[in-house]
Amino acid sequence: MSVRNDADLVLAAQAGDVASFEILYARYAPVVHSILLGRLSPADADDVTQNVFITALTKLESLREPAAFAGWIARTARNAAEDHRRRMMATAEIDAEIDAALATRGTQSEDAEAARALQAIRDLPEAYRETLMLRLVEGMSGPEISARTGLTPGSVRVNLHRGMQMLRGALGGSAV
């Protein structure tokens, strides 16, 4: 059975086929989530991911070029993150949420280490940040990242390599 491409799924979804949109969700939720996680707290990233796709579904008919869904959903995610950040007060609040979230997800030391690693990725340039989020948080491979983001495999490979290099430097020897 052949894999339906994004354009076919978008056209079907625009015609009212929700199942097609659910496939798009499965494909792009990690991308959206990683974009959001680079800007928002983990809890907010989860919530806003859902909102991004709900917004996308309601506005899907405005997407004139179905094949451009990947870029469109990524832009939607970035805009949603900015909107959310404007509504939220400050980074401090986000950090507090991170801490709270960590408390429920693992041991205290692991939580702190994970929070440090996450913050280190957030501090990377956007291209590296999002690529590494997809690789290290969402568990996607380089080829999958390339397919979902529209970046060439070469660009993804460079982003991963340089991003990881910077991340190692940022975390020093202590956490990695």
Partner: peptide, 12 residues
Amino acid sequence: LLGRYRSAAPMS
């Protein structure tokens, strides 16, 4: 370490 941040919310 970071897998814990993977998207956990159920699909809408």
